[in-house]
Amino acid sequence: MASPSVNFIVRRPWLRRWMTPLANWYTDAAGYRKLGLRADDLIPEESEAVQLALKRLPPKEAYDRVFRLRRAVQASLAHQLLPKDQQTKASEDTLYLTPIIREIEAQSKERNDLDSMVVRRKN
């Protein structure tokens, strides 16, 4: 999911030190944390990989995710932000779904690679 420019920054510690506060400010300004969501709640669900990943979530995580989504929808309809103590803190905004999606994508890529493999003998 990391785009090339992100890798470019991560590989250079001095640049990373500059960019991190900027990135934090930007993420906060995106506003989803004020509705109590996490970044992984925003991943579009309409793909097979994500659907499978959602099925593989541990029950507690899945429950919490639905709770956050419903609370956010409610807050959005009411045109209100959540009170400060219910908003997502930066430390809570963890990637809980992305690792599973990455694993599934790697698996399907491997399947594609293996299924379209051509074996030739070296004689």
Partner: peptide, 18 residues
């Protein structure tokens, strides 16, 4: 066989076999 699509061992074994 491309490196990405097959592990070292299978390539090794396949070569030995042939």
């Amino acid at each position: 066989i491309s490196r990405s699509s097959l592990g070292r061992n299978a390539r090794f074994a396949l070569r030995r076999q042939s």
